[in-house]
Design a binder for these strands. Structure first.
Length: 719
DNA sequence: ATGCGAGACCAAACTTTGTGGACT
DNA sequence: AAGTCCACTTTGTTTGGTCTCGCA
């Protein structure tokens, strides 16, 4: 990016808001994203489960030894493996063993009891903070390690398989529990017990179902009141949310319309060029007229003559291939639509060796969200087409009004459009698309018109997709348009100056805006306000923001403007003092010069970090390694490593630096990378091992539970 | 009729370097 | 037993835009 581009890019306030300086999305959004949400859910399930097992086990302990032996034997049969973790993973085992004083296992397990307790908690699973997963994502991108993710997914699926079966195991346990419990003491609440009375006569199983399926009615008055308040608040939030979504949607849709129109124009031009350049296509009726143009120049009469040759059809010509269609129409001297006519005139002019552009005038008609349109239905009938040709004598493109076939009458052209158009694009034979609204829309500089249009950035964004470099002629034209616009009379109304593309009032300068050079003379005065050219208004930035754009303040520069700084939220409101922020213009900055390594120590900022907002900011003789856990490795190897701040994250009501990997000296890179990959491999292996262990534990529990259930059914003769 | 300014209201931007407890 | 991870948290102030209303 050249310096000049940089300036255009950075200092505009609106650009700042939408662009690079926008803070990274808050954690919230990351949290809500698919994989994370899924993980949370998964975690919850896992956390809940041990509780159930606990209750299961407690009731189990109260039963006679019969099925304990049973489960014991199943336990043993399953825990053949010598792996101590494997058999000690289950808390149930430990307690039971302690109680029954089983010989061999008891010794092993009591020894490891504390360890076993911990592992029942299932924290082993995949809970990951957004930060970590983001870092992991970055790391995956860099190192291509899909394996890790696969394991996660597999595990989740595994659980999904097991999970539905487990509740069945609970039934007999809870049933006995329920019978034993006194009203009010149980977890299954007094309501359930009260409902019991009604189902006295039922069989045991139906009894159970009645308890399970009964829904508790909500009765508490206080809760409903609170709920109402909540609803009111929620309703408001919901409405705001919906409005925002609709607003965004409207923006998106209208952007799409603009994009679609641009693509359409692009396509038409392409088709036209194909048709005209086709050597097999030889319409001869217009040759005389063409020669007239070539030798005598283009004038209204020749164009009118051309149009008189044509017949207007009532129905569209149905030929699918547009190129053929235009060729055929031209030969047959027929047209149906405005577009057809445009294409034929354009063909004619190209054949007459003229450089042409085709233009499209259109509008984006959308009813604003949640608001009734005052004007009623849109009367938009467009798009409308026109042709321009390059006039050598005037050194500019001149428009042709396809209705009257008059040349060069810009204001009349607009009146031929049957409805108001806010956008006019043109495309030349090089496929260079330009926004010419400023020339063809007479109200272009009006405040209302500006507001009805998209932001200039959006238009540029769309046109960027049809990238063709500017030719000298394009640049010249831009200059000419600017001169013409400047020659128009200045607005007389103060409000018209707000966001005016050419002028700005001093009173409307934004907080971070100032006139540069400082001695810029006002170009006029409106009701006592000085009018400055918009070009002279520059956006300033504080030092930290410039660093984020890889620029630093030149030495000895004085702040160009001092603005009120935002209060520090960490200081209590009553103790805050008004702080000020020094701001500088682009011209006061230079490209960021990364600091040098002194005595083998990587230079850090006051927080012990290195700013790595851009790749170019890496300190000299250093490299930035974006691998998670790499700073640990560096520390273990005794290598100096500085955490790299790549952005900011808003969480916990505060801003925190986003640290991605660290900066180390180049000479250590190889060793660190090797050490990291070794460490990472071990980590992966451990993870897989853990996942497998857990799977086995779950399966073991599942099978044992099944056996237990069978035993119970046999014993109590339950089907 | 038109434009202006004040004021109310609202949405969005901007803010820019922790902590405590659990776990390993 | 130190080091690491993770959940907690989801602010409050400023700013600019929009709308309305009264006034010139």
């Amino acid at each position: 990016m050249s310096d000049e581009e940089m300036e255009n890019y950075a200092p505009r306030r609106s650009a700042r808001l939408k662009g690079s300086l926008k803070r990274p999305p808050p954690v919230k959004t990351v949290k809500q994203s698919g994989p994370k949400a899924k993980k949370n859910k998964n975690k919850q399930v896992l956390k809940e489960k041990p509780k159930k097992v606990e209750s299961e086990k407690e009731s189990e302990d109260e039963k006679d030894d019969d099925y304990e032996d049973m489960s014991e034997s199943s336990d043993e049969s399953l825990s053949d493996s010598e792996d101590p973790d494997f058999s000690s993973n289950d808390e149930k085992d430990n307690k039971k063993n302690a109680k029954t004083a089983s010989i061999k296992q008891n010794t092993v397990k009591t020894e490891k009891e504390t360890k076993g307790r911990r592992s029942t908690n299932f924290q082993v699973s995949m809970p990951q903070s957004s930060k970590r997963s983001r870092r992991k994502a970055a790391e995956d991108r860099e190192e291509n390690k899909p394996k890790e993710i696969n394991v996660d997914i597999e595990m989740r699926e595994e659980h999904a398989d097991i999970e539905p079966d487990l509740p069945e195991l609970e039934a007999p346990m809870l049933w006995t529990e329920v019978l034993q419990q006194k009203p009010g003491t149980s977890k299954t609440t007094a309501d359930d017990v009260m409902d019991d009375s009604g189902t006295d006569e039922d069989s045991e199983e139906e009894h159970w179902h009645a308890i399970e399926e009964e829904k508790k009615p909500e009765k508490v008055v206080q809760v409903t009141l609170k709920k109402e308040d909540l609803e009111r608040k929620e309703e408001k939030m919901l409405r705001a949310e919906i409005e925002k979504i609709l607003r965004d949607r409207k923006d998106e849709v209208s952007k799409m319309v603009v994009f679609g129109m641009a693509a359409h124009l692009n396509y038409q031009m392409k088709t036209l060029m194909e048709a005209v350049r086709d050597p097999n296509w030889k319409p001869d009726w217009s040759t005389a007229l063409e020669e007239k143009v070539v030798f005598g120049g283009l004038n209204d009469d020749t164009l009118k003559e051309f149009k008189e040759e044509l017949t207007l059809l009532d129905d569209a010509i149905k030929i699918l291939l547009p190129k053929i269609k235009y060729q055929w129409m031209y030969v047959d001297k027929k047209y149906h639509s405005n577009l057809d006519l445009c294409m034929m005139v354009a063909s004619f002019l190209i054949r007459s060796k003229l450089d042409i552009r085709i233009g499209i005038a259109f509008d984006v008609t959308l009813v604003p969200p949640l608001r009734v349109s005052k004007k009623g239905k849109s009367s938009y009938l467009g798009p409308f087409y026109f042709v321009e040709y390059w006039c050598d004598t005037e050194k500019k493109f001149v428009c042709i009004n396809l209705e009257s076939m008059e040349i060069g009458k810009v204001t009349e052209l607009e009146s031929t459009w049957k409805s108001k158009c806010h956008y006019v694009f043109t495309i030349d034979q090089r496929m260079k698309m330009k926004d010419m609204s400023s020339i063809y829309c007479s109200e272009f500089l009006k405040l209302v018109f500006r507001k009805e249009r998209h932001l200039p950035e959006v238009i540029l964004d769309v046109l960027d997709h049809f990238k063709v470099p500017d030719s000298p002629r394009d640049l010249e034209e831009d200059q000419r348009i600017k001169r013409e616009l400047l020659a128009l009379p200045m607005p007389t109304v103060v409000a018209e100056f707000k966001n005016h593309p050419l002028y700005a009032l001093e009173k409307d300068f934004l907080k971070f805006e100032a006139v540069y050079p400082a001695d810029t003379k006002p170009v006029g005065e409106v009701r006592g306000h000085n009018v400055y050219p918009r070009e002279a208004v520059h956006v300033l930035q504080g030092e930290l923001n410039w660093i984020r754009l890889a620029r630093q303040i030149k030495e000895g520069e004085k702040p160009y403007k001092v603005v009120k700084a935002r209060p520090k939220l960490s200081i209590p409101a009553d103790e805050r003092v008004q702080l000020y922020l020094d701001t500088y213009g682009y011209w006061q900055t230079e490209p960021y010069v990364p600091p040098k390594v002194i005595n083998g120590r990587i230079p850090r900022n006051e927080y012990g970090n290195v700013y790595m907002y851009q790749k170019s900011m890496v300190p000299q003789e250093c490299v930035h390694i974006k691998l998670s856990g790499v700073s640990n490795i560096a520390r273990q190897l005794g290598v100096d490593a500085a955490p790299a701040v790549t952005g900011w994250e808003f969480s916990g009501g505060r801003n925190h630096p986003l640290v991605e990997g660290c900066v180390i000296m180049k000479q250590h890179e190889k060793a660190i990378r090797a050490a990291w990959s070794e460490w990472n491999q071990m980590k992966q292996q451990k993870k897989i091992q853990k996942a497998e262990d857990k799977m086995i534990t779950l399966w073991r529990r599942f099978v044992r539970g099944k056996l237990l259930l069978e035993n119970m059914r046999k014993k109590y003769k339950i089907q």
